[in-house]
């Protein structure tokens, strides 16, 4: 540690001699980099994550939480709170375009969002109450499951739904959109609504517990289980995130698990990265970027798992 930094830390320790024990312990372990260097590094990392997230077709939150949680000295509580905020900010920004274009459907999104937001509140409460090591362990397992889902799940552009179930009919969960690629009108309806809603309870708990957003799980459930066309599944998934993450984010905010110095640069970096990433979308090799994303998630998942085991 450089002498100047050591002096600053010594002075801070003296100044805060009457502070509670956890703060003194944290001061002893304070990082060798100055605060602004961490913030700058955080902005750069979230910017890069924003670029590769948008090209790799994943949400920012699922990359942010395991990677920043593993590389930065921030407590996992603040990382999860910020992860939710990143996922929320991205979903809110994309919402208007998706809703206007018919790629997100309000009537389709509302019932899953309702059950998932209740579950996300419980998930957030559970996540904040669990010991750190257990959170890391569960996060590692979840991230490795995300990688598995991304590797094995197949998508169906327009699933065959012979007949809408009675619950989806009562909730008017059907619609139509104009597909400019094929220049045709796609009319869709859904089935297996109760099973889909049950899965959204699990998704909500995971989203709230780890602050990782849940687009990776929303899309397969909407598309493969409920029979929603792929484009509407992707758009509606993002819209559902904006509701579910807002419910969980309140819990994190009210529990003190948000720090402006972590949250704002991360949100700004991710937004800027996503904006620039969209520009690379047509020229970038999406398959390679997707492999990089999977590799990063795999490493982050294993690292979280090892931390969970105390290694």
């Amino acid at each position: 540690m450089p002498p100047s930094m050591s002096i600053v830390l010594d002075l801070t320790v003296i100044a805060l001699a009457n502070e509670p024990a956890p703060l003194q312990d944290a001061l002893q372990a304070a990082s060798i980099l100055p605060w602004w260097a961490w913030v700058l590094l955080l902005f750069l990392v979230t910017f890069v994550l924003g670029v590769i997230a948008v090209i790799g077709g994943v949400g920012g939150g699922v990359l942010f939480v395991p990677i920043v949680g593993g590389l930065f000295p921030f407590h996992v509580d603040f990382v999860r709170g910020t992860g939710l905020l990143i996922a929320l900010a991205g979903a809110l920004a994309a919402g208007p375009t998706l809703l206007r274009g018919g790629m997100a459907n309000l009537r389709l999104a509302m019932p899953p969002a309702l059950v998932a937001s209740v579950a996300a509140i419980f998930g957030a409460r559970i996540g904040l109450a669990l010991p750190d090591q257990m959170v890391q362990l569960a996060l590692g397992i979840t991230i490795l499951c995300v990688v598995a889902i991304m590797l094995i799940s197949r998508k169906s552009a327009n699933p065959d739904v012979p007949q809408a179930d009675s619950l989806s009919a009562a909730l008017k969960m059907h619609g139509a959109y104009h597909d400019p690629f094929d220049n045709r009108e796609v009319i869709w309806k859904i089935h297996r609504t109760p099973q889909g809603l049950a899965l959204f309870v699990v998704i909500g708990i995971l989203a709230g517990m780890f602050g990782i957003g849940a687009g990776w799980a929303n899309v397969p459930v909407l598309n493969l289980v409920m029979g929603v066309p792929l484009k509407v599944s992707v758009g509606t998934s993002s819209f559902i995130l904006s509701i579910v993450d807002s419910a969980a984010a309140w819990v994190y905010l009210n529990q003190g698990a948000m720090l402006a110095i972590i949250a704002v640069p991360s949100v700004l970096g991710m937004m800027l990265g996503s904006t620039i990433g969209v520009g690379f979308l047509s020229s970038a090799n999406v398959a390679v970027i997707r492999r990089i994303v999977l590799g990063l998630l795999l490493l982050a998942g294993v690292r979280a798992l090892l931390r969970g085991f105390g290694m």
Binding site: L16, E19, P20, A26, A30, H75, Q255, G256, I261, I262
Partner: peptide
């Protein structure tokens, strides 16, 4: 700002206690 590295490594509850801010 100089104290941030000590605070951001605390858990949310320890942070609130150390910073003297209540919940909710």
């Amino acid at each position: 700002f100089s104290d941030l590295p000590a605070y951001w490594s605390l858990s949310a509850s320890d942070y609130l206690q150390s910073a003297g801010v209540g919940i909710g």
